[in-house]
Nucleic acid binder design. Structure first.
Lengths: 148, 148
DNA sequence: ATTATATAGTACGATATCGTATTATATGCA
DNA sequence: TGCATATAATACGATATCGTACTATATAAT
């Protein structure tokens, strides 16, 4: 592979890393102090994908170590945003359910993003997003499959 | 803004977050134990952008708190990959210079990525990267300017 | 049924990141 | 000059992330 192509791939991941960092910083400024993106993401996952999953399921879904998920869930439980219930199918396990307080929190955070997306829409119109998404999905799927 | 557009922007940042996490995990597996992306990125910045910057310059360039940069630099200095020199123009400050060992380390890590990029090139050809980069740059520039 | 192996979750320790407060030096202004 | 304010870097403490080891339960093999 020629150096110029290497450099393009390098730059691709560099841009993605910078965007992730900037957007996460901006997003966390919208959260109450003491909450981070990881915790919000769990709530969002419970709403959008499936409620009542096990901690292990969630750790796999986010590709983080089990111990990291244990910690995130402990924070959310202390804040009253999720609750644990026994898993009737596996005594080693638990089921994670979002509470009304968690649902409210998640909805409020999302609503608070509207002005940010409004401003963004001027610089990056929806059609540009629609163009980006398929390529990014292809990239994610490769990384997901390649990491045996 | 209609919900569908909100959801597209939401998904955009979600994909970027996932890709960042996957690529960082893969990349850090290429680093010797105990090193993380943040530390490599500093070395790369010293080579590609400018050597002899101050810690504060670097913190601004990476948009991280000064204290985070202090820590990353301490790790790199302990590993002999950078050295501090006095700043002749400001007695409060230091200049960060990469050492031969740091340069060698950075080059070896980059070389070790070639096979990964080779495989990636099958799923995401260079032309697709070339298509992605301008849109991502526009997105980054917006975030960078919007965050005051 | 018994035993060996696999799996879900957590306790614990290490490092990374970040916020606040502190120190030392620079800069601006009377 | 002298003094107030601003800035670069760090010390310190808190939380996040992650790896290793451990416990409890489930599954598989016989």
């Amino acid at each position: 592979m020629p150096d110029t192509a290497m450099s393009d791939y390098f730059q691709l991941f560099n841009e993605i890393g910078i965007i992730e960092q900037l957007s996460r910083t901006i997003f966390e400024a919208r959260l109450p102090p003491g909450f981070v993106l990881a915790q919000f993401s769990v709530l969002n996952h419970l709403v959008r994908v499936a409620d009542g999953r096990t901690p292990y399921d969630l750790a796999r879904a986010f590709q983080v170590p089990k111990t990291s998920m244990t910690h995130s869930l402990a924070v959310l439980e202390r804040a009253g945003m999720i609750e644990f219930r026994p898993n009737p199918r596996d005594g080693r396990s638990k089921l994670v359910h979002i509470t009304p307080a968690g649902l409210k929190f998640r909805d409020e955070v999302i609503a608070s993003l509207a002005p940010d997306f409004q401003r963004l829409a001027h610089a990056v119109p929806p059609q540009q997003v629609a163009r980006l998404l398929p390529d990014l999905e292809a990239l994610r799927q490769f990384l997901d499959r390649d990491r045996d």
